[in-house]
Design a protein around this nucleic acid. Structure first.
Lengths: 252, 252
DNA sequence: CCAATGTGTGTATGTCATACACCGATGTGT
DNA sequence: ACACATCGGTGTATGACATACACACATTGG
């Protein structure tokens, strides 16, 4: 049952994130989970997620590689904690906006902002749904922002899930695009500003087989502003939510 | 400029996916890109993406590890090709549905289906936007499905992007949940059917700090059907699209 | 005062991606 | 017909990595 080599009482991993051992927070053992996560995040911030190795994290803290395993079950758990810490808490300003729509827009903006500040968040392998305190705080914020819609908790969760899913996917695509752009700049292939994707497609497409895609390329529609793409998508979704609200009111 | 050790003329990677060398397709060299990708996919299908190593792929084909590098620049490129081949072409039935809404629903269903059949697709590291033929075919299908909305190509691409983003994020979350569930079953922690996430949260949450989340837990709202969650989200988005269509018609 | 427990070290193992040198077969240009 | 480049495949080597395991020192509670 014990997942680690350390004895049962020891709090590691996500539970540690929730500060179960805050009671003895003053003791400050030389090496602790928070420092490990912070060091790992620092490394990722300076480069990419692939730069984060147990060895490098340990070296940065002045300990042996294996010392980390007294505080973290394995690398996967460290990454999970990096995700929660890296995404940070939701900005308090979100709930200060007037009206649920404005709040959801603010939510989206800040959420996306977190990923753009730390693209490596997207590289953390997919395991279980996030359960760290920051992630839960985002959920709490999202649900709270929707209270005035009059939707019940089930609908509100549903809406939150829809928006979160969209934002997650949207950021994924954003990161894909920006990495492609970086790569193009680096290899000197493309001098044009954003056209990378359109150009790539134009070069590859066999003519005639994908008329709609060709139309899009020729219309130069791939060169859009990604920030704006996200905002447009949010707008669509919030319109859909508006219709849901109206429907629920009609049902009453 | 040459990215590989092989001389310039050789077609590797994504370009190979597009069949630039179909001209000599009859020659059938003993080892070729398609076989490599197929073997890699087989391995991933039998286990998980982490099981795919250059060595294992090569062994399965009866060649040395290094032989693969004559056909594939590096592992990243292999993964990129696995993504395109693994997702497969869009089902032709999608465009046979009556009405753009039904078509988009079908699109969503099939797209999600591809990810549920091969969850490892989600584990492929994020690089550039997909440019393989299957991925472009999905794009073509999405854009075509929307023609009858009367939206111009820019709006249609926008809508497609919104739906794709949502589906991508939605699948990510679905996979998180199902992996958590598997893990819970394996470790014997949870006997209950779907409650994994709700239970986990209930155990971790400090009471009072996250009232909205607690309300959701107590209402048992986390135990929903994920399939249904996706459908609901799609519904919201399509409602939003409906409003966009109406707005564009008004503008005309 | 001793035994258990917690924390850190050092060493070792197996896996992985990939660089590099080499080699035979297969054309190709003269 | 012959020299030579190219192509496809092999074998060996390297350095990074996660992590198991055995040990050592310190603290602390009975």
């Amino acid at each position: 049952m014990a997942r680690h080599q350390q004895s049962e009482g020891k709090v590691t991993g996500v539970a540690a994130l929730w500060g179960d051992d805050l009671s003895r927070a003053d003791e400050r053992p030389s090496l602790n989970v928070a420092d490990i996560v912070a060091a790992a995040i620092q490394i990722a911030d300076e480069g990419e997620l692939a730069d984060v190795s147990m060895a490098k994290v340990a070296r940065r803290l002045g300990f042996t590689t294996m010392a980390l395993y007294r505080h973290v079950a394995n690398k996967g758990e460290l990454l999970e904690m990096m995700f929660d810490a890296g995404i940070g808490p939701p900005d308090a300003s979100i709930l200060k906006e007037k009206g649920w729509r404005a709040r959801m827009h603010a939510y989206a903006r800040h959420f996306s902002g977190a990923f753009r500040a730390r693209p490596w968040l997207m590289d953390i392998p997919v395991t279980r749904p996030p359960v760290g305190p920051n992630n839960i705080a985002w959920l709490e914020t999202g649900l709270t922002a929707l209270v005035e819609t009059g939707l019940d908790i089930r609908d509100r969760l549903q809406v939150h899930l829809t928006l979160s899913s969209f934002l997650l996917g949207s950021e994924r695509i954003y990161i894909e695009v920006s990495r492609a752009f970086e790569a193009a700049v680096e290899s000197g292939t493309s001098t044009a500003p954003i056209t990378a994707y359109g150009e790539t497609l134009r070069a590859l497409l066999p003519p005639g087989r994908f008329p709609a895609v060709e139309e899009a390329i020729n219309a130069g529609v791939f060169d859009g502003d990604d920030e704006d793409d996200t905002r447009q998508g949010v707008e669509r979704i919030l319109d859909g939510v508006e219709m849901l609200i109206a429907k629920r009111q009609r049902e009453r």
